[in-house]
Amino acid sequence: MQLTRVDDLDAEVDALAARHGGRAGLTAVLGGLDRRLRRTWAPCLTPHRAWTWEAVDRGDRRWWPQGVAAAPGGRYVAVSWYSTDHRSRISFADLRRRRYRHVELVLPSADGHAPLPVHAGGIAWSGSTLHVAATRAGLWVCDTRDVVRTEAGYLLPVRHRLAPSDDFRFSFLGSVGDGLVAGEYGGRTQTHRVAHIGTDAFAEVTEVVDLGVVRAQGVAIADGTYYLTASHGTRTPGSLWMGRAGALRERRYAVPMGPEDLAHDPTTDRLWTVTEHPHRRWIVTIRRRWL
Rank of each mutant, 00 (worst) to 15 (best):
G74R: 06
S80R: 08
P108A: 10
A70N: 11
A93K: 04
R99L: 08
G73D: 06
P65N: 06
W140Y: 15
V79A: 00
G59S: 14
G121Y: 00
R101G: 11
D60W: 11
P117V: 02
W64F: 15
F92S: 03
S80D: 08
W64P: 00
P117Q: 05
S126T: 14
D60G: 10
R96Y: 07
R99T: 06
G138E: 05
A69M: 02
W125L: 11
W64H: 14
E104S: 06
R145E: 15
I123G: 04
R145T: 13
W81D: 13
A137G: 03
V79Q: 09
L105F: 02
A78S: 10
V77W: 03
T135N: 14
D94G: 09
T144P: 00
P115C: 01
R89H: 03
G59W: 11
R62E: 15
R136P: 10
T144N: 00
V141D: 02
V132R: 10
H131E: 12
C142M: 02
R145D: 15
P65H: 07
V147N: 01
H86D: 15
G122P: 10
S91T: 09
A120H: 09
A120D: 12
D143E: 13
R136M: 09
R75E: 11
G138M: 07
R97W: 05
R97D: 15
S126L: 07
W125M: 03
P108R: 08
V141K: 12
G59F: 12
L95M: 08
L107K: 04
R136Q: 14
P117A: 14
G73Y: 10
P117R: 09
R101Q: 15
T150P: 10
A114V: 02
L95G: 01
L107C: 08
S126W: 11
A134W: 00
G74Y: 02
T129Y: 01
L130G: 04
L130W: 06
L139C: 00
L105V: 01
D85T: 10
Y76D: 13
W63F: 10
A71H: 10
T135M: 13
W64L: 13
S83W: 07
A120I: 06
S126H: 15
G73C: 12
Q66T: 02
D85V: 05
W63G: 04
R136A: 05
C142L: 03
D111Y: 10
D94K: 06
P115R: 04
E104C: 00
G121S: 11
R145H: 12
A78G: 11
V68T: 02
D143Q: 11
A71E: 15
R61V: 07
D143W: 08
R149D: 14
A78L: 14
V147D: 01
T84F: 12
R75L: 04
H131C: 07
W63P: 08
H119G: 12
E104M: 02
T129N: 10
A70H: 05
A134K: 05
R101V: 12
R101A: 14
A69V: 01
V68K: 00
T150G: 04
G122M: 05
L139K: 05
S109R: 13
H102L: 09
P72A: 06
I123C: 04
W64Y: 14
L139H: 05
L107E: 15
D146A: 03
D146K: 04
G121T: 06
R87E: 15
R149H: 11
S83D: 13
A137R: 14
